[in-house]
């Protein structure tokens, strides 16, 4: 099972990185989503895998899976929604403003460096 999960994380990471390196906004957003999955599952896996041992306290139960990574990942999932939403809106506004869906700065246009003068 560990092997399946580890290879799954690897595939998600590879797909995520490949998509993040694309030249247009939407693949980059999807790539970030893939990376988010990979990172969250990876973090979660740091608590090791256990089946049928949810961290719900019960006097009769002796073993629980590690609750701490779960708590960290839970907020990470919600925060990454916030991040995705922000990036999506950034991409959307950029497209609406310039009519260009690429992630390059415009050639010959005003670059950040040139605007200070």
């Amino acid at each position: 099972m560990e092997l399946l999960l580890a290879s799954g994380i690897g595939v998600l990471t590879a797909a995520g990185i490949y998509l993040v390196c694309r030249a247009q906004t939407f693949p980059v957003i999807i790539g970030l989503a893939f990376l988010t999955y990979a990172v969250n599952v990876f973090l979660f896996a740091m608590g090791r895998l256990a089946i049928d041992a949810p961290p719900i306290y019960d006097a009769a139960v002796k073993t629980y899976t590690d609750p701490l990574p779960q708590a960290l990942v839970l907020t990470a999932i919600v925060i990454s929604f916030g991040m995705t939403a922000l990036i999506v809106v950034l991409a959307l506004r950029g497209f609406l403003e310039s009519g260009d869906d690429g992630v390059q700065a415009n050639e010959g246009g005003e670059s950040e460096g040139g605007r200070t003068s």
Binding site: I9, A14, I17
Partner: peptide, 10 residues
């Protein structure tokens, strides 16, 4: 990177 992460997780 994917191979590295997979191996690390494993």
């Amino acid at each position: 990177a994917g191979l590295g992460v997979a191996y690390l997780a494993y």
